[in-house]
Amino acid sequence: MSHEEKRHWERKFAVYSMGNSTSRLYSALAKTLSDGAVSKHQEYLEQTDPDLLDPIDPKDLLEECQIVLQKRPARLQREFVDLTANFARNHQPIRVMQWNILAQALGEGKDNFVQCPLEALRWEERKCLILEEILAYQPDILCLQEVDHYFDTFQPLLSRMGYQSTFFPKPWSPCLDVECNNGPDGCALFFLKDRFTLVNSTNIRLTAMKLKTNQVAIAQTLKCNETGKLFCIAVTHLKARNGWERFRYAQGSDLLENLKVITQEAKIPLIVCGDFNAEPTEMVYKEFSNSSLNLNSAYKLLSADGLSEPPYTTWKIRPSGECRHTLDYIWYSQHALKVSAALRLLTEEQIGPNRLPSFNYPSDHLSLVCDFSFNEDPDRLL
């Protein structure tokens, strides 16, 4: 960030000064406004101890993001659907958010969103749109894909809000082919330390036909501090593009085999979040549906029959035409866990004719958010 740019942001934030709290937040947020803020990410992370930094109140950070975004359209509003009919809840729900946030390098350099102005993709503001979406729903667990600003943005800020996190980059990230990239993209998993204790963490490089691939997953066993119960949360991002259906099937099968070991053949409840790059008609979807881990897809519960996936989770326009697909899922152990609420998707009218991303939505994928509760019947099978 140049001296002139820094003075611009100082003047802008001074207008909205709210005391010491704001000045602390400004220094945290402004530090991430420059793509070149961190040159050696791992060294930066090792030198930054979140316990030595002032905590951030999510409401204050949300206000700061809204100041940056004041010239953009207001955030698109979505409602939670209550799914708790005849369900007695005796512990605080676990809110899980799944989101492919769109890697900055890919959005600007490779993805060819022909109806999205380049100005809408500027990191200084798009970053705040991403944070605004996360802060609006305040997930207990956050599962992200296409994260290429983990070390200089999401880890520093979210750690100060009480999140512990893990990042696993792709071995050959396409972001690295883009000039002025910010490093490789990958999967990231965040959880609130006051709600959960990390028991085990596994980084998985997915295989297909016994060969290591460019796709990855993170699987963590957590203990719920309120109930003492264990569960496993996993995040992944499978291979994209048409013609790779068998490859995705092999990757999904490999992930399931790993998860069977981690959950001790389903003795530990499981939640799997991901951009599978696969429609419900694909083999990998059916493999998850029919797995011995007894998984169900949470967003099916929003359909009238409880059996159908949403009509889309991503909607964009590329040179080849309009791309409207259901690719993102939150799978869960359906006998051990219940979905007590789920966030509705944006409507076609809200998305608008130019589709995503846009000035008021930062990614080409919609976020999925669900509230989970443990089934209290100990005699039920997972």
Rank of each mutant, 00 (worst) to 15 (best):
Leu301Cys: 07
Leu45Tyr: 07
Tyr332His: 08
Thr197Leu: 10
Glu10Thr: 11
Ala188Asp: 03
Arg72Ile: 00
Val96Tyr: 04
Glu132Asn: 06
Ile271Trp: 01
Phe80Leu: 11
Leu52Gly: 13
Ser253Leu: 11
Ser23Met: 13
His3Lys: 14
Phe196Gln: 02
Ser253Glu: 14
Ala120Ser: 14
Phe276Met: 15
Glu146Cys: 04
Ala278Glu: 04
Ala188Tyr: 04
Trp123Ser: 07
Val235Asn: 11
Val284Gly: 01
Leu121Ile: 06
Thr32Trp: 01
Ala341Gly: 08
Ser21Met: 13
Ile218Glu: 01
Leu142Gly: 09
Asn258Arg: 13
Ser165Phe: 09
Asn182Glu: 04
Thr207Trp: 09
Val216Leu: 00
Leu69Arg: 08
Asn20Gln: 14
Arg24Val: 15
Arg95Ile: 05
Lys267Val: 07
Phe113Met: 04
Leu293Ile: 07
Leu61Cys: 06
Asp82Pro: 02
Cys175Tyr: 05
Leu255Trp: 02
Glu124Ile: 00
Leu382Tyr: 13
Ala30Tyr: 10
Leu238Gly: 04
Arg95Met: 06
Phe87Ile: 11
Lys338Pro: 01
Tyr163Arg: 08
Gln215Ser: 07
Pro378Thr: 08
Ser340Val: 13
Arg95Tyr: 01
Leu52Tyr: 13
Val261Pro: 02
His325Thr: 14
Ala219Phe: 11
Gly107Pro: 05
Leu45Phe: 01
Arg195Ala: 07
Gly19Ile: 15
Ala342Gln: 08
Leu327Gln: 10
Pro174Leu: 08
Cys187Val: 11
Arg246Pro: 01
Ser303Ile: 08
Leu327Asn: 13
Lys127Arg: 15
Leu327Lys: 12
Ser320Leu: 11
Leu346Ala: 02
Val81Met: 09
Ser308Thr: 15
Cys116Asn: 09
Gln42Tyr: 12
Pro169Tyr: 09
Ser2Ala: 10
Ile262Lys: 12
Asn258Gln: 15
Ile134Pro: 07
Ser297Leu: 08
Pro280Leu: 11
Arg324Lys: 15
Lys127Ala: 00
Ile130Cys: 12
Asp57Val: 05
Asp54Cys: 14
Phe231Leu: 10
Thr347Lys: 09
Asn20Tyr: 12
Cys116Lys: 02
Leu131Phe: 08
Ile268Cys: 02
Glu279Leu: 02
Asn277Ser: 01
Leu337Met: 08
Ser297Phe: 09
Glu132Ile: 01
Leu102Tyr: 09
Gln42Ile: 11
Gln98Leu: 03
